[in-house]
Design a protein around this nucleic acid. Structure first.
Length: 122
RNA sequence: UGAGUGAACCAGAUGAUCGCAGAGGAGAGAUCCUUUGAGGAAAGUCCGAGCUCCGCAGGGCAGGAUGCUGGGUAACGCCCAGUGGAGGUAACUCUAAGGCUAGUGCCACAGAAAUAUACCGCCCUGGAAGUUUCCAGGGUAAGGCUGAAAAGGUGAGGUAAGAGCUCACCAGCAGUUAGGCGACUAACUGGCUAGGUAAACCCCAUCCGGAGCAAGGUCAAAUAGGAAAGGAGAGGCUGCCCGUCUCGCUUGACUUUCGGGUUGACCGCAUGAGGCUUUAGGCAACUAAGGUCCUAGAUAGAUGAUCAUCCACGACAGAACUCGGCUUAUCGGUUCACUCAGAUU
RNA sequence: GCCCCCAUCGUCUAGCGGCCUAGGACACCGCCCUUUCACGGCGAAGGCACCGGUUCAAAUCCGGUUGGGGGUA
């Protein structure tokens, strides 16, 4: 999966994108019209020391790797962690990020129908 | 057995599945295989260096740092061994510990007085009043309610009153001798007194140029019209001044050439004052010689998720140019040496 | 990553080692004034980031932590 790398791309997503709020994460999405979607992670220094920040970011990366097929192409996404994400377990983070992504436009509807289980819980 | 002191070490382990980063290999390619992958503090950025650039940099002033002695080290504010002082029954721990006898400043309140003159007081002589007062001259520093601190302390002699004025003990100073490389220690002798503060200015001794890998260097792309090299002459120097050399920098008539800012990639960048071990020297820190090993290297920044078993039930915490230290955080565990108390033999 | 700076009532700030049990302004609270509110007057409460050291004495001087802020492509 492509990553957002430049600080200018981050500020572009923050200013133009539409945010969706979850319990532990904030997801900002902006359409780009390209062939692939790109994801960036934002973990603030307010969350704690380098160890906790690394842990949160790695868990978010692992979850996005699992949900890679659910992303429709042509979007730039920034996943930001809230301060409550420090105490959350991996399963809680997984569920919250999945629900927050479903509220945004990047979620691929037919893929969700393919798995079938996500719609039932919502 | 209990209580304690010091030093060294470990920092969950094993297996399976899906993923991440570097290196090597195979393949036309997609991709696959092998291997490696955070710490004792990686932290704080408090010191010291390597490395790079600033004109390789001489002298002085200013500024800063260190401060018992000897040694170790590339260097240090670090380490080791000792000295003095403080604490502890002890093992042992702590210690910015040069100089107020170079000079200056300060010592609030209180107190007669805060560094030393005076005042109250005590005593002697003379005079006046006339029975305890005053004045003048002189001798004193024992006493004066305070304060953190009051011209060494205690006791005895001595005196008109007193005083290191004299004596004994203690404290402190200077000198001599002996021991030690030295800090210093011990003994003897002497003169009798020197308040505290240098983490106040300062003096003395030693050391220090500045900036920092976002240092610095190489290449490519597109864009815009300037940029670079040589160069008579002039100017100027990284806190300040002076001197010297060279033309490194700025301006610059003129000549020649294509380069500069931004963005990106690469180098710097993982073999180093390296680790482990043996022998030798040294009380030790450490050093020398031999053998052996290669052990993270990213650039939005690599270690995550799930399951199983075991136990002590997992703390503090994540490399970003690299080392040597210091400081701070830390669930617990192991080993060694030593001290004290109790019991038994 | 690197290099710096700062910390005083709720806020903004003064403060020669001793006059400091830390001063001022705004805010908060109580009382007075007013028919009531505002304005005004009086009063009270509320602080030297933390831990050690030097000194007779520390907000101040010296170390170390903690928490903020800034610069740098």
């Amino acid at each position: 999966m492509e990553r957002l790398k430049n600080p200018r791309e981050f500020s572009f997503v923050y200013s133009k994108g539409t945010p969706s709020f979850g319990r532990y994460v904030v997801v900002s999405v902006v359409p780009t019209g390209k062939d692939v979607s790109r994801v960036g992670f934002a973990v603030s220094k307010k969350l704690g020391t380098a160890v906790t920040r690394n842990k949160v970011r790695r868990r978010l990366r692992a979850i996005v790797q699992e949900l890679r097929n659910q992303f429709s192409p042509g979007y730039d996404v920034v996943v930001g962690a809230k301060r409550s994400a420090v105490g959350a377990s991996f399963a809680e983070l997984h569920e919250d990020l999945r629900c927050t992504l479903r509220k945004s436009r990047v979620w691929r509807k037919e893929a969700a129908d393919l798995t079938g289980s996500g719609e039932e819980h919502a």
